[in-house]
Design a protein around this nucleic acid. Sequence first.
RNA 1: UGGGGUGUCGCCAAGUCGGUAAGGCACAAGGUUUUGAUCCUUGCAUUCGCAGGUUCGAGUCCUGCCACCCCAGCCA
Length: 559
Amino acid sequence: MEDDTEKYPANFIRHIIEKDVAEGKNGGAVITRFPPEPNGYLHIGHAKAICLSFGLAKDFSGSTNLRFDDTNPLKESAEFIDAMKEDIAWLGFTWQEERFASDYFEQLFSFAERLIEEQKAYVDSLSADEIREHRGTLTEPGKDSPYRDRTVEENLDLFRRMKAGEFADGEHVLRLKIDMASPNINMRDPTIYRIRHVTHHQTGDEWCVYPMYDYTHCISDSLEEITHSLCDLSFEDHRPLYDWVLDELAMNVHPQQIEFSRLNLQYTLMSKRKIKQLIDDDIVDGWDDPRLPTIAGLRRRGYTPESIRDFCRRIGVTKSDNNVELAVLESCIRDYLDSDAPRVMGVINPLKIVIENYPEDHAEMLEMPNHPKDESMGSRQVPFTREIYIDREDFREEANRKYKRLVSGDEVRLRYAYVMRANEVIKDGDGNILELRCSYDEDTLGKNPEGRKVRGVIHWVSASEGLPAKIRLFDPLFVVDDPDGSDADYEALINSDSLQQYDGFVESSLGEAISDQRFQFEREGYFCLDSKLSSKESLVFNRVVSLRDTWAKIEKKST
RNA sequence: UGGGGUGUCGCCAAGUCGGUAAGGCACAAGGUUUUGAUCCUUGCAUUCGCAGGUUCGAGUCCUGCCACCCCAGCCA
């Protein structure tokens, strides 16, 4: 899959690993892990983490484990596990081992008993509220719990009875005995076990005490002999705790946690919670809505794994806050599709044309290359007929010479076909344009007319031979570039026009299209069949991304 | 006002022992073109949050400021 061109460019994590490998740390091994919690779908922010953890390991001939961080059965479910695996595989990565944090529940419990025996953990019987009150604030130290000095025997007994199900949820928790006055709140006797009488998607009803992240993650990493444990910046102040647990347990493998900043993409959201709310509130179609930055959404939209990997490489890895422009992502997919997507013609917003001097009941097959620069992609035959459709954007009753499309009384080149003149505009009573009466110059197929220069080239589809198709165009979901920036009602920032649907026409060759093919509709952009909505009987195309549109910029400037 | 981080071009981001600011995206101007696409050429930070200091020389070292982000789940 990845060749050298897919190697990550220089970044601080690569430097750390390079140094470690050079010094023979961990015997020169590089083992990473990707540890999602199965409580939603993966998004492009996760793709950044995936590309990093898998990519870096691969660059150093190491390996990567996929580990589901399933310590909170209340929020998780098995349905997300398969979706996550599908997305990671689709992105092009292969994990060494598939693990679950829940695989380690037994070991985790024993380690906790050991911590109790060594007086490094205790059962606290304060309520959640009381624990919060004892924790202190950002600027004030906390207070010790009255239960902090229970005997080892009492703690062990209580903890085992917690496991045995003798207590109700919330009655007791197991806490680490560290320092209630630590300036780092994470070190103020963090809770590591809580009682939850719920069924777990992996372990069923075997457990009613569940370990928490800070305690579970570092031990899981250690047990898997992870060398470099990459995570986002929010875990930076958890690192002392990560290290504390492994040190106190004297684990012989002590992975290095390295934090990097998470991705922010302009005009969209990366918060799983908020994405879920958009789904619940029916603002989008589901986790795979093409407007969402989820991997499933991007896939349905028509993005390729290569383009997403390229994106992750282009944005780099640092510890600074970022807000990447959509243009970077779009550039990646255009780059890929320009060389890879066969060209075809499709009319999004059709305007009917009758070519009055062209014979009726005649379909002339015209040969067109599938790619202007790549002959190996072959060619196809496209029918030309008396009645065709062009896009309404490509006709103006009046326009100056800068407008390189069809204008009343003037000529334009029909892509790979004839030069055509607009003679008459047919309107309804309200002045809406119904159709155009045109004529063609039969001596212009494959050659330019003599003595005059046509304004430009437009695309078209035969009215009788073309296929009707629903065409969906997308705009960003939000109207501000940082909807995640404030906790304010982000749904008020929704772009109400993020999905535009048109009844268009596409050339007949598209009747054979399948959903993982992507095409360039000439002059319009890149499209693919919607994997959910499209059928043989009624085609539905999604626009992956438009073509770069210089004309739109010129237009915008002049208004 | 505690702790942890970050500040290099509009957006990302390289910048080894201090040696005189990569690259990408975007943008601008040309050229090619039966896609206003692609492609090609060219331009785009005397300056690295600010202010001092050390030095022959500092984005890189020191000092002091400023701004922004994260942390008070029995979430991850």
